[in-house]
Every structure is written in C-alpha cells, then in structure tokens.
Simulated scan of single mutants.
Amino acid sequence: MKNLVLWLALFAASSQLYSQTLYVSDQLTVAMRSGQSNEYRIVKYLVSGTSLTQIGTSEDGSYIQVRTRKGIEGWVQNQDLSQQPSGRAMYKTAQGTIANLEGKNSALKQQLNEISSKHASTQDKLTSLTSNNNEVSKELENIKAISANAIQLNEDNQRLLEENQMLKNEVEVLSTDNQRLVDNQESDAFLNGAFAVLIGVMITLIVPRAWPKKSTDWA
C-alpha cells in the first residue's frame, strides 16, 4: 500500500515536471519518432516553432516524449527542442503582431479621421448656429426697438386723442357761447328795431301836435 502511494506521488511529480511546453528549434524540420532512437520510425515531421507538450523523457535525457496540439505523441531529440519559441516563430509572431497593430492603427486612423470630420461638421454647425443666433438677436433687438416705438406712438396717439377731446370740449363750449352771443345780438337787434319803430311812431304822433297849424290864405 505504501509503495502504491509512493508510486502515485512520483507519477504526479513527474507529470508536473514533464507537462511543460516546448518548441521545435530553428531547424527547418525535426523528426518525431515512435521511440527513443533514430532506429524507430518517423511518426511526423515537425516544422520550426511547433508548440509541443512534454509528457516524458528518456533515462539519459537525450530524447523527450512530446504531444502535439492534435494529440499525436512521439519522441524528439532533446537538442532539437527549446523552452522558448524559435527565432523564426518569434519573427512570425512579431510579424503577425505588427500586422495586427498596423491594422488597429489603420482602424484608429480611420476613426480619427471620422471623428475629425464629425468635429469639423459639428464646428460648422456651431458656426452656423452662432451666426443664426446673432441674426435672431439682431431681429429681436429690432423688434424691441419697433415695440418701443409702437409703445411711444401709442402713448402719443393716446395723448393726442385726449388733447383732441379737450379741443372738442372747448369747441363745444365756444359754440355754445357763440350761439348765446348770437341769440343775444338778435334779441338786442330786435329790441333796438322795436325801440326805433316806437320812437318813429311817437315822433309821428307828437310832432304834428307840437306845431300849430298855419292858416291858409285860401280860407
């Protein structure tokens, strides 16, 4: 029982030790064989930069048992493996990263151009709105001035109406006084005429009596 526990512990430790990621070195192709020597058949050729998972190692450490991402297992010489990606793989990765960054940079430039265009459009709209606002402000000032003039004209008109009404009242008073004077003049003229007639009648009646009649020679 103790031996079984010890064996399981060693297996777990070896699994943790071997389950690391290795990469094929900068050689063009590397043979993955079915055993721990060149005498075993080639299972697959691995190109430089291929990512492999270590699952075991030979007793002398010259061969490493690996598994590909597709699950193919085999043995590869330790000298053909590296814990770091190969320069070629790193170059390809860098190229891909550069291409990706260039694509993002191009997209960002396009977004920047769109934002700049929108900003320019917004600026034009702002300028137009500012101009319209200035025009509206001028119209408002004109309306205020016209309103002020209209108010002044209304006040002047009201004052003139009041003065006109006062003049009408004065005209009516003067007309009444004039009519009264005319009536008085007519009455005075009538009285004067009547008095003159009366005087004439009196003269006609009194004067002949005041003078004696002369005798005529015809008698």
Rank of each mutant, 00 (worst) to 15 (best):
V207H: 00
T204R: 02
G96H: 09
T216M: 05
V47F: 01
D217S: 09
L126C: 08
E186I: 11
K2W: 05
Q79W: 00
E73Q: 11
N38E: 12
G193C: 01
L181N: 04
D217P: 01
Q165A: 11
W211D: 00
N38V: 13
T127L: 05
N142Q: 15
S62G: 07
Q179W: 00
R41L: 11
L191P: 01
D177N: 13
E139Q: 15
N113L: 12
Q179T: 10
T57I: 14
E114T: 13
M202V: 14
I55M: 07
K214V: 15
V5Q: 12
N113Y: 04
A94H: 00
S117K: 14
G71M: 09
N113R: 10
L4F: 06
K118R: 12
R41N: 09
R159K: 12
N164E: 07
R69T: 15
N142I: 15
A94D: 03
S187R: 12
N154E: 10
V197R: 03
I146S: 10
N178M: 14
N134E: 13
S58K: 05
N134M: 14
N157M: 09
R159C: 07
S62R: 10
N154C: 06
L205K: 02
S187K: 12
E114I: 13
N164D: 06
A31I: 04
F190C: 06
K144Q: 12
S58T: 14
S62C: 09
L28N: 10
N164C: 06
A9Q: 13
S19I: 01
I203D: 02
S51G: 01
N149Q: 15
P212N: 14
L126H: 07
N157W: 02
S86L: 05
T204E: 00
R67S: 13
W75Y: 13
Q65K: 14
A120V: 11
L167M: 10
W7S: 15
L205W: 01
L191K: 12
T122D: 06
L28R: 10
I146D: 14
D60C: 08
L205G: 00
R180N: 12
S117M: 09
S37E: 08
E162R: 09
W218G: 00
T93N: 11
S121E: 15
L140E: 03
I98K: 03
I115V: 14
T50A: 08
S82R: 03
V182F: 01
S187D: 11
L17K: 05
N178W: 07
M1Y: 02
V66D: 01
N149A: 14
D80R: 06
T97A: 07
S175F: 01
L174W: 02
R41C: 04
L205H: 00
A219G: 09
D156W: 07
A9H: 03
L129G: 00
Q83S: 08
S131C: 02
A94R: 04
S82M: 04
E170N: 09
A99I: 07
L160W: 06
V24L: 03
S58L: 12
S48I: 02
N134T: 15
K118S: 13
K214D: 14
G56C: 05
G74L: 08
K214A: 11
G49P: 02
R180I: 10
M166T: 15
M90V: 14
E114S: 09
I143S: 05
I199K: 04
G49W: 04
V30C: 10
